[in-house]
């Protein structure tokens, strides 16, 4: 089984998010970057599926050289080789086109990625990739099992779940529950240094959507404390002041 895992390079979850240049750019100064946590789940699943010589894993990232430590981390965790498309990943459409172009003639059996990235929260790349490659996609799966030539997945729906069977190849966005998280061990970290990381130049893509500006949420007003012995006071405030019940 040949698996392609798409990873994005995102600010660590504890990052305080600020912007520069008149709020047009994310302020990356002093920020620690990590493999997107949902992509880590995708990678962990890929490792479980290909373990003991049952296949190979390529990780692909669209981004600048500054993301190489994140890519090496994925190699240390267990991917066999890495590809970086050398461009600023400025929109989901751009990223999806780069990955589709790279993947189209490489006959991957499965393309995995996180259900969303924790920076732009788009959930767009899986569906776009599926469409560009003409194969099925599921944006967020909670379980994933290979059954012969098909993959059986469980996905969440409002108030329940759905069990689906798709032909391979397919593009699947992974969320929690899909795999036990893997972390790099010493051997992995050592071997990551010598695993291949190929840099590929991007193709031209027509721009359809782009982010022009950011805003930070307005701070909340001061808190009102209610004594633990007067719960009816809280109910009164929620009713007449906050007007939520």
């Amino acid at each position: 089984m040949k698996v392609l895992v798409c990873i994005s390079n995102v600010p660590d979850t504890t990052t305080k998010i600020t912007f520069t240049n008149d709020n047009t750019e994310f302020n990356a100064s002093g920020v620690q970057f990590i493999v997107n946590p949902y992509d880590e789940i995708a990678l962990s699943k890929a490792i479980a599926l290909t373990e003991a010589g049952k296949g190979s894993i390529t990780v692909i990232h669209v981004g600048e050289p500054s993301a190489d430590p994140t890519i090496r981390k994925a190699l240390a965790t267990g991917a066999d080789e890495a590809v970086r498309i050398n461009a600023v990943p400025h929109s989901a459409w751009f990223v999806a086109n780069q990955i589709a172009h790279y993947a189209k003639d490489k006959s991957y059996d499965l393309i995995l990625l996180g259900r969303e990235s924790i920076d732009y929260n788009g959930s767009q790349v899986a569906g776009m990739l599926g469409e560009l490659l003409g194969i099925p996609s599921v944006s967020a799966v909670k379980k994933l099992d290979i059954e012969g030539e098909r993959v059986v997945v469980e996905r969440e729906i409002e108030g329940g779940k759905e069990l689906l069977s798709l032909p391979l190849p397919a593009v699947l966005g992974t969320s929690e529950g899909v795999a036990e998280p893997r972390i790099p061990n010493m051997r992995g970290i050592m071997s990551a240094r010598t695993k291949p990381l190929t840099v590929v130049e991007p193709i031209a893509v027509e721009e359809l959507a782009h982010i022009v500006r950011y805003e930070t949420p307005a701070p909340r007003g001061a808190i009102t404390f209610v004594d633990a012995s007067e719960p009816e006071k809280l109910v009164e405030l929620l009713h007449s002041k906050a007007k939520v019940i």
Binding site: A92, A96, S123, Q124, A126, V138, S139, A140
Partner: peptide, 20 residues
């Protein structure tokens, strides 16, 4: 949940920009 799967495919089919 379903819309998140549909919107990017519809956008790609139509060559449309997507605001998710």
């Amino acid at each position: 949940f379903s819309g998140k799967g549909l919107a990017p495919r519809v956008a790609a089919k139509l060559g449309a920009g997507l605001a998710d």
